[in-house]
Computed example of a mutant assay.
Amino acid sequence: MSGKRPTLADVAAAAHVSTAAVSRVINDAPGVSPETRAHVRQVIDRLRYRPDPAARALAFGHGSVVELVVVDDAATFGNSPYYGRVTAGILRELAGGEAQLRVHVVEKPDAADRLAQIADSVSAGVVLINVSPALAAEFYARCDRVVSMGPSAPGVPFVDMENADGAYAAVVHLRDTGRRRIAALHGQEGNPCADARRAGYLSAVRDLGLADISAVGKLRREAGYELTVRLLERNPDVDALFVACDLMATGAMQALADLGRRVPRDVAVVGFDDSVIAVCTVPPMSSVHQPVEAMAAAATRALLDRDLAPGWRRVFPATLQVRDSSAGVATGRRY
């Protein structure tokens, strides 16, 4: 192609099909056999063809679109405060402009195929959540107009926060309020945010000379409940919990109540995210503030401004919001 950007006509010529057939493949439209569809996609990959976003916007009669792609099940998407906050942050940045938001909630078994389809039809850009590093790298090779919420594959632009620093601050706060058996409920291994929060906890207990009392599970309310019950069976003298997310922490607080443990008198609790959940628990929950809306808005602004070089990142600081769930020492004295 002599260095010029390949066109749809170039793809059609190389694949020995019509431009209409290539268009159907790109748009996942009917009218093309599976064999032809697979062959055209191979040619698209070989030529590194990327549809022109402006042309696609005109063809479909709309302005540019920001795609939010979440790899998770629909029920979790609907129940998670985090996803709602990301959506709110994107919409805040799009307000008053011509760009629109389109949301894709993708089940994990379908993720590879759906991400390939989305990569071939991007206009303004894509915000990725819960996409594995391998799939994020494949997506980035096809489409460089992408930002991940949290780090993923090397080179893929991302927004993040100082997760490890936030976890460290939470443990120091619990120690400073008189707690000495500080346990942690960590998120699943392989989740970059959960891994960083685990690293911050481990660094803090090591520096403070405390025991590592940990349990690992999914970032879900049910997991928080079950892990707390099992952890206290093995370690009945635990007097504080650092929990990897607020949703998980609500399950932990319910388990403590069912076990007759008072919060914070018997067991202090600190969550992570500082979502609306944190101020709705009884007592209100201390939590590490994650500026999710601002992070999502920053990702969206970078896409709209086309301000994304390989390795672009923006990392936000962590701050601890102290509330009643951790405000007293084990004797019941309040601060």
Rank of each mutant, 00 (worst) to 15 (best):
Y140S: 14
L115T: 10
P133S: 08
H104E: 08
A278G: 12
S203F: 00
M248Y: 02
F77K: 05
R5S: 10
A252Y: 01
V65R: 09
R180I: 04
D305K: 14
T281H: 02
A141P: 03
N163W: 06
G328M: 07
D144Y: 01
V263G: 01
H62D: 01
E293K: 03
L128V: 08
L247A: 10
Q42A: 14
I182G: 05
L58Y: 11
Y201M: 09
L47V: 08
H289R: 14
A134Y: 07
V71F: 09
L210F: 11
T76D: 11
L304A: 08
S132K: 00
T7H: 03
L135Y: 03
H173E: 07
G209Y: 11
S132V: 10
Y335T: 12
A196R: 11
V32N: 02
L185W: 06
A21H: 00
V263M: 01
G61M: 07
A309Q: 07
M1W: 00
N27T: 14
A199S: 14
G96Y: 12
L219I: 03
V146G: 06
H16S: 14
V105L: 03
Q290L: 06
A164D: 15
D10Y: 05
P34E: 05
G3R: 04
V292F: 09
R85T: 15
F242N: 00
S203T: 09
T177F: 03
D258N: 11
Q100L: 15
A119Y: 08
V86M: 04
D110F: 01
R46G: 12
A223K: 00
T177I: 04
R102Y: 08
A170R: 02
R198P: 10
L227Y: 02
G125E: 11
V147K: 01
A14V: 11
H62N: 09
P30M: 11
R180T: 15
L94T: 13
R102W: 07
L303D: 07
A13M: 00
H39L: 02
R206L: 04
E67R: 04
E162N: 13
M253A: 07
R198V: 06
A169T: 10
D273W: 09
D207N: 06
L128G: 06
V205A: 01
A20D: 05
A111Q: 15
V267R: 06
D144L: 00
A244N: 11
S325C: 12
E222F: 04
R37V: 12
V243H: 01
P283I: 04
F242V: 05
S123C: 06
M285D: 03
V25Y: 02
S121H: 02
R102M: 13
S214Q: 10
Q321S: 15
T300P: 13
A13C: 00
E67G: 08
F139L: 13
R262S: 11
A12V: 10
N79I: 00
Q290A: 13
A330I: 14
